[in-house]
């Protein structure tokens, strides 16, 4: 605790780095998954193929994935972000596609009857109705990405994992505690906030 109070600036910088890396990876993964998910919702074979590939990527152990990327992209943040995008695809694509598919056909039909174009139906009907399921996916993906970022410190990506690895290397428990507990708090905090948003979206659509 004393170490934490004396070095809070160090923890704050690591936390900021952690959030920045996670957010970058999550944004890239989300845009990519949205494009794939929208296409996959209309084409079951593309959906099956994407899930197969993404499921395979998702099963690869984190550190092994980061290691396998080293011969291709070397150490550092790019490597970490590629790995995180790969890990998030399964969850995000699955939820985006499921969300769009579960919009009742009558609603889509009546939107078409009102003269909406396919693009308008997607933006004004399908995506808003799918939003609770999409946020649920975002929640799992965010937690996964935060967890991968901790490990990615080992390949010099920065973030809270740096404190943990430095603490282990110099046998300095307070540093380990600071890094590990802050990472846990970040993951739980993000999970609970996104859960609250998900509930609010569900209520607003139900009402």
């Amino acid at each position: 605790m004393q170490w934490f109070l004396r070095n809070w600036d160090q923890v704050a910088i690591a936390l900021w780095e952690h959030v920045a890396i996670s957010l970058t990876a999550l944004s890239i993964a989300f845009v990519l998954s949205l494009a794939i998910g929208i296409v996959a919702a209309r084409r079951p074979r593309i959906y099956a193929a994407t899930l197969g590939i993404a499921g395979f990527l998702y099963t690869i152990p984190t550190l092994a994935f980061l290691a396998l990327l080293i011969p291709i992209v070397g150490l550092g943040r790019t490597n970490a972000i590629i790995a995180m995008v790969a890990f998030s695809l399964l969850i995000l694509v699955r939820n985006i596609t499921t969300g769009i598919r579960t919009v009742p056909a009558e609603i889509v039909d009546s939107a078409r009857g009102m003269g909406m174009s396919a693009m308008q139906i997607l933006a004004k009907v399908e995506l808003p109705l799918a939003s609770p399921v999409i946020v649920a996916g975002l929640r799992v993906a965010a937690v996964t990405v935060i967890s991968v970022t901790v490990v990615a410190a080992y390949i010099n990506a920065g973030g809270l994992g740096t404190l943990i690895f430095n603490g282990i290397a110099s046998d300095h428990p307070p540093k380990i505690w600071a890094g590990a507990l802050t990472a846990c708090a970040l993951a739980v905090g993000v999970d609970l906030s996104l859960a609250a948003i998900e509930r609010r979206l569900r209520r607003s659509h139900a009402g």
Binding site: S147, V150, I168, I176, W177, A180, L181, A183, A187
Partner: peptide
């Protein structure tokens, strides 16, 4: 995070 649990 798995690594955080191991580290703790």
């Amino acid at each position: 995070p798995s690594l955080a649990v191991l580290a703790l």
